[in-house]
């Protein structure tokens, strides 16, 4: 049987090929952490990681992900220990209503990976991947109507500062 992995558990692919990953998570797994803000890839609230890279779960059909490994916000904390980004988001109050937060955090986790892999952003200039401008650019695919952007950038900078130099 065709399967995909969500937070390290195997699940059968849905029968209806029209099912997006986001609707699969909601309708088949009752896993509601990834949010639907637009269903058009415009807001980023549904951001999840597929094999470590961030995607909009609303823009991919589930059948495209056979054998792939999906990490949602529910899989970001390990063994009840919050990810440093989750802690930093709470500490910096990097959200208000919380609806975009799952996507923001998944994007931030991917951002750390992109930095480690030295993938440049559209504004990266030189070896500095930790400027606020670079973080803002990388986080601009995730809308937040509560306007938590400054606090989100602070939270990400806090976690970058924890990385071994």
């Amino acid at each position: 049987m065709s399967t995909l992995f969500v937070n390290e558990e195997a699940y059968p692919l849905p029968e209806d090929p029209r099912t997006t990953l986001l609707d699969f998570l909601h309708q088949h797994l009752s896993m509601f952490g990834a949010k639907k803000g637009c269903d058009h890839g415009q807001c980023g609230a549904c951001t999840v990681l597929v094999d470590g890279e961030r995607i909009n779960a609303c823009l991919v059909f589930t059948f495209q992900l056979e054998g792939k490994s999906v990490t949602t916000i529910e899989g970001i904390a390990k063994n009840d220990e919050l990810h440093p980004l989750q802690k930093a988001f709470v500490e910096r109050d990097a959200f208000q209503c919380g609806y975009c937060t799952s996507g923001q955090i998944c994007s931030s986790v991917a951002l750390l990976g992109e930095r480690a892999a030295k993938n440049p952003s559209a504004v990266t200039c030189g070896p500095d991947y930790s400027s606020k401008e670079d973080i803002r650019e990388r986080m601009s695919g995730n809308l937040c109507r509560c306007g938590a952007y400054p606090n989100i950038v602070d939270a990400i900078q806090d976690v970058i500062a924890l990385e071994p130099q």
Binding site: E74, Q86, F89, V90, D93, G98
Partner: peptide, 21 residues
């Protein structure tokens, strides 16, 4: 003080209207 519902929100476990059953 940090939000008392903060952990629910950063772990994806706060339940909004459409997610209720």
């Amino acid at each position: 003080i940090n939000r008392v519902d903060g952990v629910l929100k950063v772990t994806g476990h706060a339940r909004y209207a459409a997610e209720q059953q």
